[in-house]
C-alpha cells in the first residue's frame, strides 16, 4: 500500500472542514492578532521612533510587516502544538483502537496525520499572508514574479518542516497522556516560552544575552527567519534595526528544522508502536 496514509489524511481534512466553528476560529484568531496587536504596536513604534531611524540604502519595512511573519510562525506553532488533541480523543473514546487493530502500518498513521497538519498549516499561513497584505503588510516588495514564486515555495517548505515537528511533539504528548487537561496544561506550558523566546515579535538583537542564546536554539526562531527571508528579503530594516540574513544562515535554519522534524517523527513512531489501546 503505497498511499496507505491517504485514508487518515482524508479523514483529518474532512474533519477540518466539517467543524465550521473551529475552522472559522482557526482563521480568525491570527487575523485578529495581526489586526489589533499588530496595528496598535505598529502605531506606537512609529511614534516612539523618530523618522531618522531609517537606515539609508536599506529596505525599510513597517513593524506590521515585521511581525506578520512572526504571527504566521506563532500560529503554526499553536495550531500544531494542539494538533494531537484529536488523537487523544481517538485514543480514549474513538477509533484509534480500530486503526491499531488494522493492518495499516503505524508509519502511515503518523504520515497521514502529519500531511493533513501540513496542509492545514499552509491554508492558515496563506490566509494570514493575504489578509496581512490587505492590512498593509509589504511582502515580496521589489521581487520579480519568478522570485516571488520561488519565495512562496520556500515559505511553504519552512512551514511544512516546522509543522511536522510540532505536530509530532503534540502526538507524542497525546499518546502518553491520559487526560485532556494534562495535555492542554503541558502544551500551553511549552508554547508560551517558545513564542516569547523567539524573533516573532522583536529582533533577537534587542534581547538580553541569555534569552538571545535560548532563542537561537528555538525552532520557532528558525521558522520565522525562513519566513522573513522568503517574504521580505535578505537585507532590510525595521523599527530602527538592521536585519541581514546570509543564504548559509537560512539554509542552516531550514536543515535545522528538517532534522528536528525527522527526530520528532521517529520519536512519535516509536511511541505509537509501543502504545497499548485496549
Amino acid at each position: 500500500m503505497k498511499f496507505g496514509f491517504l485514508p487518515i489524511y482524508l479523514r483529518d481534512m474532512r474533519r477540518f472542514f466539517r467543524f465550521k466553528h473551529q475552522l472559522l476560529s482557526s482563521f480568525l484568531q491570527p487575523i485578529l492578532w495581526l489586526a489589533f496587536f499588530g496595528m496598535a504596536m505598529a502605531g506606537n513604534f512609529d511614534r516612539i521612533l523618530s523618522s531618522n531611524s531609517v537606515i539609508p540604502g536599506v529596505l525599510e519595512v513597517s513593524y506590521l510587516t515585521f511581525m506578520c511573519a512572526g504571527i504566521i510562525g506563532a500560529t503554526i506553532l499553536f495550531t500544531n502544538m494542539y494538533g494531537g488533541f484529536s488523537l487523544m480523543f481517538d485514543k480514549n473514546w474513538g477509533i484509534l483502537r480500530e486503526i491499531m487493530a488494522s493492518p495499516l502500518p503505524r508509519r502511515d498513521l503518523i504520515i497521514g496525520i502529519a500531511s493533513a497538519a501540513i496542509t492545514k498549516s499552509w491554508i492558515q499561513s496563506a490566509i494570514i499572508l493575504i489578509f496581512g497584505i490587505i492590512l498593509g503588510v509589504t511582502f515580496f516588495i521589489g521581487m520579480s514574479p519568478l522570485r516571488t514564486f520561488i519565495s512562496v515555495i520556500g515559505f511553504f517548505l519552512f512551514v511544512a518542516a516546522f509543522a511536522t515537528a510540532f505536530l509530532c511533539i503534540s502526538l507524542t504528548l497525546a499518546l502518553r497522556m491520559d487526560s485532556p487537561e494534562g495535555f492542554q496544561g503541558i502544551s500551553t506550558l511549552l508554547t508560551m516560552p517558545l513564542f516569547f523566546l523567539s524573533n516573532s515579535l522583536y529582533p533577537l538583537e534587542g534581547l538580553p544575552p541569555l534569552m538571545g542564546t535560548i532563542a537561537l536554539v528555538n525552532p520557532l526562531t528558525h521558522l520565522i527567519t525562513g519566513i522573513r527571508y522568503c517574504t521580505i528579503g535578505e537585507h532590510f530594516s525595521s523599527i530602527g534595526m538592521e536585519v541581514i540574513y546570509s543564504s548559509t544562515e537560512v539554509l542552516f535554519s531550514f536543515l535545522y528544522l528538517v532534522i528536528f522534524s525527522i527526530v520528532m517523527f521517529v520519536i512519535t513512531l516509536k511511541t505509537v508502536e509501543k502504545v497499548e489501546v485496549s
Partner: peptide, 22 residues
C-alpha cells in the same frame, strides 16, 4: 466500547474501514 467517530457518517465509517484495510 463503542469505537466510532461521532462526527462521521454511517457510510464514511464503513468506507474508512475499507480504506485502512486497503
Amino acid at each position: 466500547e463503542i469505537t466510532l467517530d461521532r462526527d462521521m457518517t454511517v457510510s464514511e465509517t464503513l468506507e474508512f474501514h475499507g480504506d485502512i484495510y486497503g
